[in-house]
Write a protein that binds this DNA or RNA. Structure first.
Lengths: 129, 129
DNA sequence: ATGGAGGTTCCACCAACTGGAAGGTCAAGC
DNA sequence: GCTTGACCTTCCAGTTGGTGGAACCTCCAT
């Protein structure tokens, strides 16, 4: 299967798939004409990557997960460990964002938002904590 | 004031402050010896930047906010508009993360996490939606 | 044989820094 | 007056995860 068809099926841009080959996440076969030829297994791998990336796993985490995925002798605890660490990272990000949100909305609450220059948002940002 | 002292006071690495000069966010004066010399106003600006960045505003948004900050004739509504857009962006990010979180924890719930190879996380990621 | 839709490589760019090398400056101590 | 070490300078390269574009090749239908 050529790259365009693969791109359509897994929902990744062809450029991204080429990039994934560049960094050795997939190794499609090459046709004598130079075109990449993808097998079902490659498709499966790319689907895996696409889903894992959508969950926010970094490329390196994806690489580790992919290695486990291909290793029939892995222990599910190894996978769960990575997943758990990632879950904790997500939670950290959420709480970071929520604390930003609170600070920002506190600043906004006091801002009239009219045509006067006085603005607690700007003055709040300018002052050291 | 030299860059090291400024860095300590505003809590930004010296490298970052040099970078901010590079992209014209601050324009410290230069001593005849080539050293950057920062005024109180520069300090104030850098504090502003540090706080705004900590709230997740991009550099370009910071630049816009800084311009408003320096413009005594701005309307507070202009500031609030930027802040509101940013708040919405934060909310989008939070909900993206929460949906990732749900997907991941659903996958994890079914994974035994023991020494067996069977792992619903990996099989869940490999299958198209 | 020609046109257009695919494919290929390579190079440059994005954000927002960070690390490191190579070298200049300053102040203190001997 | 010289050395030492902390601090400063510039410049170049690398990070993450791609994306855009140019120049060129290949395939298929007409």
């Amino acid at each position: 299967m050529n790259i365009g068809e693969v791109a359509k099926r897994v929902g990744l841009p062809a450029k991204t798939i080429r990039y994934y080959e560049d960094i050795n996440l997939v190794r499609p076969f090459r046709d004598p004409n130079g075109y990449r030829v993808f097998t079902e297994k490659d498709l499966h791998k790319l689907t895996f990557l696409s889903r894992a990336r959508a969950l926010g796993f970094t490329i390196e985490k994806c690489r580790a997960l992919l290695a486990l995925w291909e290793d029939q002798t892995r222990a599910s605890s190894d996978v769960k460990k990575i997943a758990r660490a990632h879950l904790e990272e997500i939670d950290r990000k959420v709480s970071d964002l929520q604390s930003m949100r609170k600070t920002l909305s506190d600043l906004m609450r006091d801002c009239a938002g009219d045509d006067r220059a006085d603005c607690p948002i700007l003055s709040g940002l300018g002052e050291p904590r």
